[in-house]
């Protein structure tokens, strides 16, 4: 019988995924496709925010949306109603999408004519932060009813996002939500975060968010 040997590995468990994510990002860059990874807790308003975002940008870019959930296709149907191309991805019980699943999703979506691809990740503030999907930029939504203390409790999610949208600001008076404190909590974890208060329902702040996204998509394409 062969002898058992000890082989030193010293590799992050995320390194395989990180490599796939870098490869996907490079492939997307070469094709001029911008991929936004949108994350948040369940019920923070990802789908409503997306429908407003699509309405603001659909005349400028061809948009494709991947809805990742554990089950059902209600979100994909809502997005399809906006006229944007959409598909539903099921994660088979997993709480997040990794780079390999994102690549498969993009293939299923058929991105040949897509300029702005959006991944609506599984509603969860913990796991999706651990797995690089290969996205060009990461964005998250924190909604007012969740509370201003969430950046303290889920620091990793806030630290990896380029943009934090604070949604449902119309109900701020009912929740004793301190917007300035919330911004300080976010910036302490991530000094580079762009923070945009919005109300997806009324459309407040959506223009500012659309401006940011437009500039990023354009820069991504021009910098091929």
């Amino acid at each position: 019988m062969d002898e058992v040997k000890i082989i030193e590995i010293k590799q992050s468990v995320f390194s395989a995924n990180d490599r796939q994510a870098e490869q996907l990002r490079a492939d997307l860059k070469q094709k001029g496709i911008f991929l936004l990874n949108l994350m948040s807790s369940p019920g923070s308003g990802k789908t409503t925010t997306l429908t407003k975002t699509i309405a603001a940008l659909k005349d400028e870019f061809t948009i494709g949306v991947m809805e990742a959930d554990i089950d059902s296709d209600v979100d994909a149907k809502t997005i399809a109603a906006t006229g944007a191309k959409s598909i539903q991805l099921h994660t088979g019980g997993m709480c997040h999408l990794d780079a390999g699943m994102t690549r498969q999703g993009l293939e299923a979506l058929d991105t040949s004519d897509v300029e702005l691809a959006i991944l609506e990740n599984v509603g969860n503030l913990v796991c999706p932060a651990e797995f690089d999907t290969g996205a060009s930029k990461n964005a998250m939504i924190l909604s007012v009813p969740e509370g201003a203390d969430k950046p303290l409790k889920y620091p990793l999610m806030f630290s990896i996002c380029d943009v934090v949208l604070i949604n449902k600001i119309d109900v701020m008076p009912y929740f004793d939500f301190d917007l300035e404190q919330c911004k300080r909590n976010i910036l302490m974890r991530n000094p580079k975060a762009m923070i945009i208060p919005i109300c997806a329902k009324t459309g407040e702040g959506i223009e500012l968010w659309a401006d940011w996204l437009r500039a990023e998509v354009t820069a991504w394409k021009n910098d091929k």
Binding site: M1, D2, E3, V4, K5, I6, I7, E8, I9, K10, Q11, S12, V13, F14, L156
Partner: peptide, 12 residues
């Protein structure tokens, strides 16, 4: 303290 790393394996 935030790492998850494969240190080594025992194999034949």
């Amino acid at each position: 303290g935030n790492e998850v790393q494969i240190k080594e394996i025992e194999a034949v």
